[in-house]
Design a protein around this nucleic acid. Structure first.
Lengths: 140, 140
DNA sequence: CCGCCAATTGCAAATGATTTGCAATTGAGG
DNA sequence: CCTCAATTGCAAATCATTTGCAATTGGCGG
């Protein structure tokens, strides 16, 4: 179980509070290290720990803070997973299309390409989003 | 204006019909070669050419046929653009985050990496999704 | 330990995108 | 032209996500 001290500070920096619901939500995200929908997070919460609307609001906050990353699988539901702080917010993942379990991909090989793309297209502030999908060993 | 003959055949292969609404929708997609939401498609249609529900159904069909590609920018709206047949359905894009204008990216450099990822992770059937975002010259 | 006050929450209602049921309409082959 | 499955329009239903608001709560100062 995490004491959430790190989170407490991080929230405090933006004059935000560490509340019961937020603590519970963070604990779910830390335990299940894979993309979860707001619904799924809410279900895994201890009974009465937080309202669904509060889950939405907390996730929104965490996303603004860059603490959580949004995944869109194309089924109309947004899923979120904690960002690994070691990767300064830029990291790619391999996600199982059956169970959404997730593996981190090593270094980003696309950075280089990004610069070339910007150069050739005359676009500014070019970024990218790269995700891998497949079927994990457990699901095969 | 396209005569839509190619589409006619392609639909026929799956015992689908080329109808008025579908023709109109395809014409919009061919003219505006950038990701459009169902709403946007519907708006650009000649008055009364198709119901919004029919646009949704047609786009769904085109997506199943692999004729259209779905883009999720994270604003809760799905956008779709025609797939360039030359690229057998695999192609990356650079999309303007302001106006959604779109440029195609040349060859896919990630294919190689994909195999390595599959190997190391023991995942099967690994695919990927890669999109670039930026601000196009017109929007700068 | 107490009180204050902005931040936060629960609840219910509002939004907005997308889907669906169904009866009426329409392609396209014969 | 006739037939029939595919398709459509329309309205109602779903589903995810957001929002208004009064009540509650964290955390700082005293």
């Amino acid at each position: 179980m995490s004491d959430c001290v790190g989170w407490h500070e991080r929230l405090h920096r933006e004059s935000r509070r560490m509340t019961g619901p937020r603590r519970a939500i963070l604990q779910v995200l830390e335990k299940e290290r894979r993309p979860l929908s707001n619904q799924e997070i809410h279900q895994q919460l201890p009974r009465g720990a937080s309202d669904l609307a509060t889950v939405y609001r907390s996730i929104q906050l965490l996303e603004r803070m860059g603490a959580v990353k949004r995944f869109q699988f194309g089924d109309g539901v947004a899923r979120f997973a904690l960002v690994d702080e070691r990767h300064q917010g830029h990291q790619h993942h391999l996600v199982c299309t059956r169970c959404a379990s997730m593996v981190e991909i090593g270094d980003c090989v696309v950075r280089e390409l990004e610069r070339r793309v910007a150069m050739q297209s005359k676009f500014k502030a070019v970024t990218h989003r790269l995700e891998f999908f497949g079927i994990c060993p457990a699901c095969q």
